[in-house]
Design a protein around this nucleic acid. Structure first.
Lengths: 253, 253
DNA sequence: GGACGTCACTTGTCATGACAAGTGTCAAGC
DNA sequence: GCTTGACACTTGTCATGACAAGTGACGTCC
């Protein structure tokens, strides 16, 4: 026989509030009862109330503003921003996708080495030398921020006569690679993780918003050339389009 | 002049522990000092220690086991599982991608209505009737679980003579649609969010792992036909491949 | 009328204390 | 040798209390 133990008070309280939010009792944007009010209404102590609210915060259901109160977050998964990363070319020139994205600060260029993720992705070992370049870009219409990191192995830079300046903008980079005789192919992998505190502040992420990490490896004739990593929050604002295609009549790769 | 205020104690403590983890002082899988040990070492109270540990837990850096202690999580973003969702066809037959995924339970079929996300995605209004079907599948080699939801609008089911049984497996569904004269095209959108408690238990997600949500809308000759939603955790195990392609010589869509 | 200070209310932070409950060890008992 | 129970240690939960700090309204003073 399975013993049934009552759930912890703060869990019950979180479930109750979550239910009230989902039922529309507390619509998006509305103000929840204050902690002291919840303390009285449910007959529990303030730490219990705060623990319940903390759970709802990490779930992304609620935001709290000091001195004001707790508010129900706007609807999740709203497809407000699309991050179309299709590489397009017209008249022999690569276009920078996403013209609504603007670059606020100067890109930061540096020397780095491949790690356990980027190395194998580029067909290299861990710890090989490469140029790195970090960009912070903003989606003007919505204010959504994203971090773009470009990893250019030394071999790629030398082969395409890029010098030691990987800071050039994306279209130029692609054009230079093609001018060096490469026929470009790309493939992307996507994952998500909880942001680090640094990323939370840099991207101005509200609590409870995971980070979407897109890795695009662009390959040429002889193998992988560069890796681009895009990090963007998935608040109520980000809903990136990543892939389009049609059924292939070929066997599985 | 900007006043500099010292960070909260629990934040400082979290930063210190995070640094020790990143520096290798506490390698992945190792046991952190107990709460009481941290209390003594840093001269703070237990709630402060617990608040710091809670932050590291939601970051996904640490897992805690009652009665045992706090452990450093294994490396994040390890590309162990790939979720290749390319639709392939050979000899006129659609293959179910991902043969390593097995289905544990019988799929749950039901009637539903489109919502604010699925409606527009299918070129319909919110609240229109559709068949729904939920599957829980498991990646045998790693034990990673995923939830797949298929939304089949009534119009699609009628047009392709699917009857009212949307529970048929994916390859059969695609074949039936093509047999009805459609030339299939798909497009995917990806986002991530914090899982609900239900999803956490159903997918057996550890703390601090966001949920990756993939929407694939498959369209035929006359517009969108079906929508498939895949939900999978992004623990140290999931690193889905979503897109492959090459530069197109056409103008931007 | 406008600037300003006060005050009530809110959440943030931290300490102390207590008990419940899961884990592993080790010694006693069979 | 094996089982079993006690025990120490761990984290989970909850209460109480206190002060810091941000917000907004309201009244006072110029």
């Amino acid at each position: 026989m399975d013993l049934v133990r009552p759930a912890a008070l703060y869990r019950q309280l979180a479930t109750a509030i979550r239910g009230d939010i989902e039922s529309g009792e507390y619509p998006p944007g509305s103000l929840l009862p204050s902690e002291s009010a919840l303390t009285e209404r449910y007959g529990v102590s303030r730490p219990t109330v705060r623990q319940a609210l903390a759970a709802l915060r990490t779930e992304g259901l609620v935001t709290v503003q000091r001195g004001r109160g707790s508010f129900v977050r706007a609807a999740q998964n709203a497809p407000a921003v699309t991050l179309d990363r299709t590489i397009t070319r017209s008249a022999g020139r690569y276009a920078d996708p996403g013209t609504e994205w603007s670059q606020d600060e100067e890109p930061t260029a540096y020397r780095t080495t491949t790690d356990a993720i980027t190395g194998p992705a580029l067909g290299m070992n861990e710890g090989e030398a490469a140029f790195g370049c970090d960009r912070l870009i903003t989606h003007r219409p919505t204010g959504t921020r994203a971090m773009v990191r470009t990893i250019v192995p030394f071999a790629t830079a030398a082969g395409a006569e890029l010098g030691n300046d990987p800071t050039r903008p994306q279209p130029e980079l692609y054009a230079a690679l093609e001018a060096a005789g490469h026929r470009l192919t790309w493939h992307e992998t996507v994952t998500a993780r909880t942001p680090t505190p640094d990323e939370t502040t840099a991207l101005r992420l509200p609590e409870g918003t995971p980070l979407l990490v897109v890795h695009r490896v662009t390959a040429g004739t002889a193998g992988p050339l560069i890796l681009e990593e895009t990090r963007v929050g998935t608040a109520a604002v980000a809903y990136p389009i990543v892939a389009k295609g049609r059924a292939k009549a070929t066997a599985r790769e």
